[in-house]
Nucleic acid binder design. Structure first.
Lengths: 121, 121
DNA sequence: CGCATATTCAACCATCCGGTTGACGATCCC
DNA sequence: GGGATCGTCAACCGGATGGTTGAATATGCG
């Protein structure tokens, strides 16, 4: 069961966390590997992952000494569905997303799809 | 131009603010009228409206001594488009939203689609 | 065993957030 | 002009948030 909207949107409000989600889109990852691109302590990333987990946006499974993080799209769907209540805007235009993505990548500091590297800060 | 995702998601993370957006879906409203259903000071609501405005989710226009608040769906679309990047979940199922809505309304304190009335708190 | 790796815990800090109250500035209207 | 209404500003408060560091807990491996 996805967590409530408060937690979901709050989790999405941080660029580091959105970057993490984007990374996890690629593949499941261990905590250390998630932390790698960020110039931030491992503990900080661990906290971010807890926030994402409590929001239901990811799940974590410990295998051996490494804890694997997995994207959980259900929570995102919950939020997306809420937004659709504001149905005044058109059905999704995928090209929209392409354009948005390029804009994001062109200036990573602005929106946080790209992992933040030291240069960004 | 919609504000950045940080501001948008942060604005959406508060149930009072989501309620306000839902109310504005109905019609444009004056600040005082927005504040009416909440048992909270006018100043607090004024701040919430500022947050929504800075996120680009609403615009405010002063006519005479009353300031009208208007929903701005573009910012919401920005966030929605971002979410679609996580395209692993199905295209929108409108029934999904119906079900979600009923659940929300059955227990308003849980998610904040219904304006919070004094009884809720 | 004993060391290295993976991750969290605990304490701490600065800042932000959501709320309050009281004073203030505009505007309408008699 | 002057009172009522609309809304914001400023100061304050408690609690959450995002980060740090250092110690602690597992787990894997030679």
């Amino acid at each position: 069961m996805p967590a409530n909207l408060d937690a979901i949107f709050a989790a999405l409000a941080d660029p580091t966390r959105r970057s993490i989600l984007t990374m996890l889109l690629e593949d499941d990852m261990a905590v250390t590997d998630v932390a790698d691109p960020f110039h931030m302590s491992l503990a900080a990333i661990s906290k971010h992952l807890s926030v994402l987990a409590e929001a239901g946006l990811i799940t974590q499974e410990k295998r051996g000494r490494v804890k694997w993080c997995k994207l959980e799209p259900d929570a995102l769907r919950t939020a997306s569905v809420w937004m659709r209540g504001f149905g005044q805007f058109d059905p999704l235009d995928l090209d929209d997303f392409e354009r948005f993505l390029s804009a994001e990548l062109a200036q990573p500091e602005a929106g946080g799809l790209a992992p933040r590297t030291p240069e960004d800060i």
